[in-house]
Amino acid sequence: MSLLADPKAAFADLTRPERWVLGVSVAFMLFLLGALLTGALGPTYFLFLVGLAGMYALLSFGLNAQWGFTGLINFSVAAFFGIGAYGSALMTAESSPIAGGFNPLVGLVVALVVALVLALLIGIPTLRLRADYLAIASLGLAEVVRLVVLNERWLTNGSAGVRGIPSFFKGWPVLSTFPETMPGLRLVVIPGSPIILGTSFWEALLNVLLVLTFAGVTFLMLRRAHQSPWGRVLRTIRSDEDLARALGKNTYSFKMQSFILGSLIMALAGVFYTHLNLYVGPGDLDPITTFYAWVAVILGGSGSNRGALFGGIVIVTIREGTRFLNDFAIPIDPAPMRLLLIGIVIVAVMRYRPQGVLPPQRELIWPSAVDGGGTTETPDSGVREQKGGGGDE
């Protein structure tokens, strides 16, 4: 049911968790709008937060393509994120010790190719074995990549990181000069709280459009893949790999495809982060990035693309929202509050909603087979009757 065509019917068709998510989302958007209008939240910083939310959504999409679809336990999200970030940074940055100065599109291609090679190197020896081996190997891979980035100064500048990274649209016609050519605007909606739209705002707006493009294309691709025969094989592997193998499926090949797909999406998130932050360092490969991605997928619902998107937004809200606790006179350091709040979220989800806030039933073949509502649609007649076939055997 289309929300635009019949809003009442579309809302009535939503499950209780979907209504809850919709209500919370609308309330949060109104809160952000009020903060923007009153000047409590700068428009440039707001767009930066939207970019971060898109980046975490991409990380969640990548992990969901591996764990949610196929049941592959990957603890090296930060490693593939770092490969994407450093791959693009080292090809485009002025301070790059090995190359630099290339068009960001070249950096994007190089980052994805390196991520593909790394996924093959880690996947070939482990995906033929039990999931435990992939988990152990990926956990080691994350630390190896971080230590290489930290210690190999000739390659990555070590702890100094890579600076002088250009925007993603450098060298593009029109878009490369768009922020400078746009006029500065001063909007006064509420007296005494002007909204300033300058060059930095237009640069942030381009970044938001970029991540929306990346995330939108990825979401549609994964949604299509989830409903395809390929996606059904992945779900069978996740539920019972022996059954999929007994049905004649090459489970090793399918697991490799899923692992590579997820790794490329994670690297894409790293590429975007590089050109959003314009700096990348070893600290960006912290294992907490992997932890955040797992929390986002578990919170939203394993196998659910909508859930991965929702989980990524929640993670950024908690991570960045706690920074504003410094403005209040509370006797608590706000930094540890992030992990505390995320821990509370995990406990609450495991206790009251172990399948996630937005489980994937709506994204499967039978839209009516949703949590708590409707029954699975069945055909009115058998296959033989539909074909006009014969009678009793």
Score class of each variant (00 low, 15 high):
residue 56 Y to K: 11
residue 57 A to W: 01
residue 57 A to I: 09
residue 58 L to E: 12
residue 58 L to S: 13
residue 60 S to T: 13
residue 61 F to A: 11
residue 61 F to Y: 15
residue 61 F to E: 08
residue 62 G to S: 13
residue 63 L to Y: 04
residue 64 N to E: 10
residue 66 Q to K: 08
residue 68 G to E: 05
residue 70 T to C: 15
residue 71 G to S: 07
residue 72 L to M: 13
residue 72 L to E: 10
residue 73 I to K: 00
residue 73 I to P: 00
residue 74 N to R: 01
residue 74 N to M: 03
residue 75 F to Q: 00
residue 75 F to G: 00
residue 75 F to V: 06
residue 76 S to I: 09
residue 76 S to D: 03
residue 76 S to Y: 03
residue 77 V to G: 05
residue 78 A to D: 09
residue 78 A to P: 12
residue 79 A to S: 05
residue 79 A to P: 07
residue 81 F to C: 05
residue 81 F to K: 00
residue 82 G to C: 15
residue 83 I to Y: 02
residue 85 A to I: 15
residue 86 Y to P: 07
residue 86 Y to V: 12
residue 87 G to F: 14
residue 87 G to M: 14
residue 87 G to H: 12
residue 89 A to L: 14
residue 89 A to V: 12
residue 89 A to D: 12
residue 89 A to G: 12
residue 92 T to K: 14
residue 93 A to C: 07
residue 94 E to N: 08
residue 94 E to R: 15
residue 95 S to W: 06
residue 95 S to L: 12
residue 96 S to D: 09
residue 96 S to R: 10
residue 98 I to M: 13
residue 98 I to Y: 11
residue 98 I to P: 00
residue 100 G to N: 06
residue 100 G to P: 01
residue 101 G to N: 02
residue 101 G to K: 02
residue 101 G to P: 00
residue 103 N to V: 06
residue 103 N to E: 08
residue 105 L to S: 03
residue 105 L to Q: 01
residue 105 L to W: 06
residue 105 L to C: 03
residue 105 L to V: 10
residue 107 G to P: 03
residue 107 G to I: 04
residue 107 G to T: 06
residue 107 G to Q: 05
residue 108 L to G: 11
residue 109 V to D: 05
residue 111 A to R: 01
residue 111 A to M: 06
residue 112 L to K: 04
residue 112 L to A: 13
residue 114 V to K: 04
residue 114 V to P: 04
residue 115 A to V: 11
residue 115 A to G: 09
residue 116 L to D: 02
residue 116 L to G: 03
residue 118 L to M: 10
residue 118 L to T: 08
residue 118 L to F: 12
residue 119 A to T: 11
residue 119 A to W: 10
residue 122 I to Q: 05
residue 122 I to H: 07
residue 123 G to I: 03
residue 123 G to V: 04
residue 124 I to E: 01
residue 124 I to N: 00
residue 125 P to E: 03
residue 125 P to N: 04
residue 126 T to H: 08
residue 127 L to K: 06
residue 127 L to I: 07
residue 128 R to F: 09
residue 128 R to I: 09
residue 129 L to C: 01
residue 130 R to E: 13
residue 131 A to H: 11
residue 132 D to H: 11
residue 132 D to N: 11
residue 132 D to Y: 08
residue 134 L to P: 01
residue 135 A to T: 06
residue 138 S to H: 09
residue 140 G to W: 09
residue 141 L to W: 00
residue 141 L to V: 03
residue 143 E to L: 15
residue 145 V to Y: 01
residue 145 V to N: 00
residue 145 V to K: 01
residue 147 L to D: 07
residue 147 L to F: 07
residue 148 V to H: 02
residue 148 V to C: 03
residue 149 V to N: 01
residue 150 L to F: 11
residue 151 N to E: 10
residue 151 N to A: 08
